[in-house]
Design a protein around this nucleic acid. Structure first.
Lengths: 185, 185
DNA sequence: TACGACATGTAACCAGTTACATGATTTA
DNA sequence: TAAATCATGTAACTGGTTACATGTCGTA
């Protein structure tokens, strides 16, 4: 059962550095345009974590002050690569979701006199799903070109889930606005 | 922009107490069989939060020691009902997902010599989705009978997302195991 | 009589966000 | 010359989990 002694933020960093060496700033940029829709990371995590990874010997950092800007480029050590592979081989913990919109929707029957509150939440939910799906679709061609089937699988997973989510919310609005069609398979 | 001064755990409690008065223990049981798949809560949150809600005048607690067991039954005050409605009327924050399985899948190309690691993660993901969907399906008849279209919408949303997730993972396994069919729409 | 469910709570910890502080370089 | 971007970091806070501590009641 013993799982990796490193946080998932550490694994994001190790995974990205396995691609190529990067600065902390570049790690943040890359996260924001790739893993962000299922795993975000802030500077407040990245920099301290890089420090810990360095102390643990999993990354090494090279100072690169050419041009006057002081920056540290981090790269994986063999131990870091090993830690990444070990983590990949372990089973993942069961996913815990926390979705505030679902929470609101779940209790929307309590909105008594304000009957539109529930459908408003649903419409907002539909729109958020549609926007996310659109944003992810823009990334698709680049990933197809890159030829990484895993990253492509993740992206398409996101696209499908959001498409399905948007459709479902629209249907639910219709179902709530005209009750009576209350059965189905 | 100003949002509710209460945590989402507080809203879960308020929402459940709007149904009927409950003990902290009952709140936990109900969460575990209803909101849990998109919003969990532990005793370590529930009891301190009940205390805060009582101090804020949103719930009142009645001691009920009949039978020797000491228990507190909590009920919404008018102010509590008002706080619940106010929260429902506000737009929800954008949903932030954290999915460790997607993270692992995303970096599975780094598993080099262990080519089965990626598909193993996918199969585990498919299975988790299928189990969740099955568990949610069991709850459906009860909710249909209860006649709350919002709770039903949430449940069906969960069922669909998990069905779609399971299907997607199975397809992705096939796609990775026999490459060459690498194009599509 | 032991075990499982009922019942309440606290303390230590962990992961993550936000706001702050600082400063150089590039570009409009 | 002002604004955006590159670049690094810390401190305070928030939300949540886990483990612990305690005790009753019903039932197999």
């Amino acid at each position: 059962m013993s799982h990796s002694p490193h946080s998932n933020t550490a694994h994001v960093i190790l995974g990205l550095l396995d691609g190529r060496p990067r600065t902390g700033y570049e790690i943040k940029q890359t996260v924001d345009t790739s893993t962000r829709f299922f795993w975000a990371a802030s500077y407040g995590q990245i920099y301290p974590e890089l420090r810990r990874l360095r102390d643990a010997g999993l990354v090494e950092s090279e100072r690169d002050d050419t041009g006057g800007r002081k920056r540290s480029v981090h790269r994986l050590t063999p131990a870091g690569r090993e830690a990444l592979r070990a983590w990949l081989a372990e089973p993942a913990a069961a996913t815990e979701y926390r979705d505030e919109k679902l929470l609101k929707l779940f209790f929307s029957a309590s909105a008594v006199e304000d009957v539109t509150a529930g459908t408003a939440v649903l419409r907002a939910h539909a729109e958020e799903h549609a926007e996310t799906a659109a944003r992810l679709r823009e990334l698709e061609p680049k990933l197809i070109a890159a030829g990484n089937p895993y990253q492509l699988a993740v992206l398409r997973y996101g696209i499908r889930q959001n498409d399905a989510g948007a459709r479902h919310c629209e249907e639910a609005v219709r179902a709530i606005e005209n009750p009576g069609a209350e059965e189905s398979a």
